[in-house]
Simulated assay, not measured.
Amino acid sequence: MHRSRISTILFDTPEADAAAAFWSAALGVEARPNDDEPQFTSLPGGIAGLVTAVQRIDGEPRFHIDMETDDLDAETDRLTALGAVEVSRWLECRTLRAPGGHLLCVIPVHSDRAEFEAAATVWD
């Protein structure tokens, strides 16, 4: 048994400063650079219930989601059994491409544990 939920939406772009300024104004929230991981600019409260951020990337602009889980192996196996393909790993993050071409990352729980447990789906 393990649990998972969509926790994060990321605006990926090489134009991160402009994107952060736009999404900050569009969502009515303050853009906060992340000193520990400078490729990320947080948009706290941008989308209710989700971590929202801009991520600086080298490729084409896109959106991607993060699935947080209490078991990385089990969640990766579950999603690949549904047709996703693992394309890379970075630290504890596993990047998958879902059918249809969309990217998603499987990450360890990073939200408040009680919030995660209340919102996550339990999988057998």
Rank of each mutant, 00 (worst) to 15 (best):
M1V: 11
M1D: 12
H2I: 11
H2C: 03
R3P: 02
S4Q: 14
S4Y: 14
R5M: 09
S7N: 11
T8G: 01
L10T: 14
L10P: 01
L10W: 06
F11M: 11
F11A: 08
T13R: 02
P14E: 04
P14G: 05
D17E: 15
A18F: 00
A18M: 06
A18K: 11
A21R: 14
F22S: 00
W23S: 06
A25I: 00
A26Q: 07
L27T: 08
E30G: 02
P33M: 03
P33Y: 08
N34L: 04
N34G: 05
D35Q: 13
D36N: 13
D36I: 01
D36T: 02
P38A: 00
F40N: 09
F40L: 15
L43F: 04
P44Q: 00
G45T: 04
G46C: 02
G46R: 09
A48C: 02
A48R: 13
G49Y: 07
G49I: 02
G49L: 09
V51G: 11
V51N: 13
T52W: 00
A53E: 12
Q55W: 03
Q55I: 02
Q55N: 12
Q55T: 00
R56M: 01
G59E: 00
G59Y: 03
E60M: 08
E60L: 09
P61A: 10
P61V: 02
P61F: 03
F63H: 09
D66S: 03
T69R: 13
T69Y: 10
D70C: 06
D71L: 05
L72R: 11
D77N: 14
L79R: 15
T80H: 06
T80L: 02
A81Y: 02
A81T: 09
A81N: 11
G83W: 09
E86N: 03
E86G: 03
V87D: 11
L91H: 14
L91K: 15
E92Y: 06
C93W: 14
R94T: 15
R97E: 15
R97S: 10
R97I: 14
A98K: 00
P99C: 08
P99R: 10
G100H: 05
G101N: 06
G101R: 03
C105F: 03
V106Y: 07
V106S: 02
P108C: 03
H110G: 13
S111C: 10
S111V: 11
R113G: 10
A114R: 08
A114Q: 09
F116V: 05
E117H: 13
E117R: 14
A118V: 04
A119Q: 15
A119K: 13
A120N: 09
T121Q: 14
T121A: 13
T121E: 12
V122T: 15
V122A: 15
W123V: 01
W123N: 09
